[in-house]
Computed example of a mutant assay.
Amino acid sequence: MELDEGRRAAEAGDWVGAGHAFVRAAMDGSAEGAELAARVTVELEPLADGGSAEAAALLAGIYLEYFDASALPRAVRHARAAAEAGLPAGQRTYGHILATGLGVEKDEARAAGLFRAAAEGGDAYAMFNLAQLVDDPDESLRLFEAAAREGIVAAGAVLGDRLSALDRDEDALGWYVWAAGRGHTGAMNAAARWYRDGFGTTPDPVQAVRWFFVMFAHGDGDGIHEAIELVKAGALDEGQIREAGRLAGAPEAAEALIDTVLGGSRD
């Protein structure tokens, strides 16, 4: 869908819209999206040089993500221009460059100021970045939650970690489940293990195996051994395994687990 949206925007001469659509496609794993995002830089350069802060910020991100180190000076130049124009996306991108020392002298204090300005402008990624730099733990938690509620899934997973460190296990589990439900495999693993071991809740082997199944569906098989061990230990019967598969949207995984562990013991 993003690729089609990008092509339509390109046909209409909306190169900024096209670039954003191609980047979204690339972020979803499309190799063609990454290729088209790189190609559209030819059209974005004159826009950025003509004063378009949005084109400059978009160019900086594309150069950082889809080009080699030779494009770094261009990324720095465009990010700085977009930041100086007051565009939140530019402030966030230039803040990232300063925070990591990409082609410039590392300056976390200045980066934090840019992240804060971008966050105040509503940039969710800037909220996430700022949360990792501020010294105030309460402010950090507020920023992680704000970023998560704006759709930054990784922020929810990190929030779970931070709340866990504060022994707020029930809240932590809630955020792990939130992030797991949005595709974060690390949060899936945390949720599965916490349900298995009873952190933040009473032990719930059905929910544990559910999230192990979801992990596997996302290409991470690290939890399958734990699921097998739960079944071997008698923590779930066939009906509960099937319920875990139903909740995970993976009934075939449930049947495979039943056949693997219980196949020889039924009847």
Rank of each mutant, 00 (worst) to 15 (best):
W178F: 03
V153Q: 07
R74V: 00
N189D: 15
A157E: 12
A126F: 11
L159H: 13
E145R: 15
L130R: 05
S164K: 14
W175V: 01
G90D: 04
L72N: 13
A85V: 00
L58W: 02
P88T: 09
Y66L: 06
T93W: 04
F115E: 03
S164L: 09
G86S: 08
D169V: 00
R193G: 05
A112V: 00
G121C: 05
D161S: 10
F115L: 02
L133G: 06
V153E: 06
A112N: 11
H96I: 03
H184F: 08
I97T: 06
S70A: 14
A147M: 05
L59M: 06
L159N: 10
A55G: 08
D161M: 10
P137N: 10
A118T: 04
L173M: 08
D136T: 10
D136R: 04
H78S: 12
A131G: 08
G121M: 13
A57R: 10
A192H: 07
A57V: 04
G90A: 04
G103T: 07
Y63W: 14
G101M: 08
F144W: 13
G101Q: 08
L166A: 13
F115D: 12
V153P: 11
V177I: 11
L143K: 06
A56G: 10
A157G: 12
R196C: 01
Y94W: 13
V104A: 09
L64F: 04
P88G: 03
E139V: 04
L159R: 10
A109F: 07
A165D: 15
E139R: 07
E108R: 15
G151E: 07
L143R: 05
Y94C: 02
L163C: 09
H96S: 12
L58V: 07
A112T: 04
Y176R: 06
Q132C: 01
F115K: 08
R74G: 13
D68Y: 03
A69D: 15
P73F: 02
Y195Q: 12
D107A: 09
A71Y: 05
G186H: 11
L166G: 01
P88V: 02
D68Q: 08
A172S: 15
A131V: 08
D169C: 00
A154Y: 09
P73M: 02
G86V: 00
R168G: 05
G90M: 03
A83W: 14
A79R: 03
D171F: 02
S140V: 03
L159K: 09
A79C: 07
N129S: 14
A69Y: 03
D135L: 04
V134Q: 06
L98E: 10
Y125Q: 11
A111D: 13
R77M: 09
G121Q: 12
A147P: 06
L173T: 02
E139Y: 06
L141R: 15
R74L: 07
D171C: 01
M127D: 00
R116T: 02
F128M: 09
V104F: 01
A187E: 13
Q132G: 08
A117V: 03
L159I: 13
L130V: 01
A99D: 15
G113T: 01
P73L: 02
A179C: 07
A147D: 07
R142C: 02
A148D: 15
A124C: 02
A89C: 04
N189V: 00
R162I: 03
L133F: 00
D135M: 04
H78L: 00
L159S: 11
R116N: 08
G174L: 03
E150D: 15
A172M: 13
R74C: 02
Y66S: 08
A165C: 06
A60D: 11
V134I: 06
G156S: 15
